[in-house]
Write a protein that binds this DNA or RNA. Structure first.
Lengths: 222, 222
DNA sequence: ACCTGAACACCGTTCAAGT
DNA sequence: ACCTGAACACCGTTCAAGT
């Protein structure tokens, strides 16, 4: 139906984890829209309804997909100067998202409150309160970093980056220069800011500058 | 089929814009998943295929929805001190998103490069380059603000904020305190940072602090 | 006990036929 | 010319039946 099943063509599935891993692989490769109960069952060589023996619903399956994606994550550093630590934590999460694109797509469909996924929150809170930030500001800063990470990934061009860049450049060039003078004289820069790790790094460092300004503030107030 | 059609029960649709406005209304009210060609046609009192006379595909319809949502947007200020201006521009965009939740959901499904939607980019670039930032940094800062705006809206609890807060609190409280000491001692703060305009304002001001740090830098270098 | 085909209520879109 | 019902290839999930 959907071409040759890539693996685990066994006739019988053994564990819940195995189903989740196959779902993660399928979603990472072909996108979240390609992850249907029917297609996943086909890939595993079982009937569609068999999957409901492992997960009560597709929503629960997506939870399992998140767990499977977070499973192979690297350790998060919390020792040392706050700026380097926080940068490493964010970049580690970023790498995790690049490795598992479906992690982002899944989070856009439903909130994630699983313990493993909260490790990032824990590390961020530890670093920031350790640097002298109060708990409320630390929690809000965590939310900002979280928004930046997921937002950046979700709003990045999905497939062909080259193609997306050309589309952006074409749209910007077609703008009437009288109405859009700033964009008209910065077509290259605006199109360039559409994607790439440099733009991500720029945003991260700017946020870290903002955090530094906050920490100076509270230190000065003491 | 879907209950009583709310309005424009006319039998015949007149314009492309009318279809787009009805689609926007449906998506804003019941969510983007509720916006199907069949259901929209029902709402308008026409056959499903009639819609394809106005939009070649659903993707094109979603473009029309964005146009309809952006149509009633307020003017963007670009005169005066950069910080107040930039804040106003971001808050104006924020209001637009709160008025039309489907704007965010639509953007998550496909990129938006329509002239009207690029007004936000134009205003941001004008303010930042006017304040002395080079075009590349300005473009990247725009991307950060854009990411923050859409990311914040997309990752906010969708429906009942109270209910989402309770779920978050429950998940955080259930965490083993030995493994999550920072979160365990900041359950209220972490749950509170899940939603609300104060958290949005905090993130925005922190980013503005980061921008200020960049502007000081380049001024000092001169 | 475990697995699953058929069925139900949905999708977007093509195609051919109605007026 | 404009509109649209039927059909096709998909969805998630319930239910009853198979082993």
């Amino acid at each position: 139906m959907y071409g040759v099943p890539t693996e685990t063509q066994r006739g019988t599935v053994t564990t819940r984890e195995e189903v989740a891993r196959a779902a993660l692989e399928l979603a990472d490769r072909d996108g979240i829209d390609a992850l249907s109960m029917r297609r996943l069952a086909d890939t595993l060589g079982v009937g569609t309804m068999t999957l409901y023996g492992y997960f009560r619903s597709k929503s629960e399956l997506l939870g399992g997909v998140v767990d499977a994606a977070v499973d192979d994550r690297e350790d998060l550093p919390t020792q040392g100067p706050w700026r380097g630590c926080l940068r490493d934590v964010v970049l580690t999460a970023r790498r995790s998202m690049l490795r598992h694109p479906s992690l982002v797509e899944t989070r856009m469909r439903q909130p994630v409150l699983r313990p493993e996924a909260l490790r990032f929150a824990e590390a961020t809170m530890t670093i920031l309160t350790g640097a002298g930030m109060d708990r409320e500001a630390a929690a809000r800063t965590f939310r900002l970093l979280f928004t930046f990470l997921f937002g950046y990934a979700a709003l990045s061009p999905a497939g062909d980056v080259e193609q997306a860049g050309r589309s952006a450049r074409a749209a910007l060039s077609a703008l009437p220069p009288d109405d859009y003078p700033a964009l008209a004289s910065a077509v290259d820069e605006a199109a360039g800011a559409m994607g790439g790790e440099e733009t991500f790094a720029f945003g991260l460092e700017l946020i870290l500058d903002g955090v530094a300004a906050r920490l100076d503030h509270s230190t000065a107030q003491r």
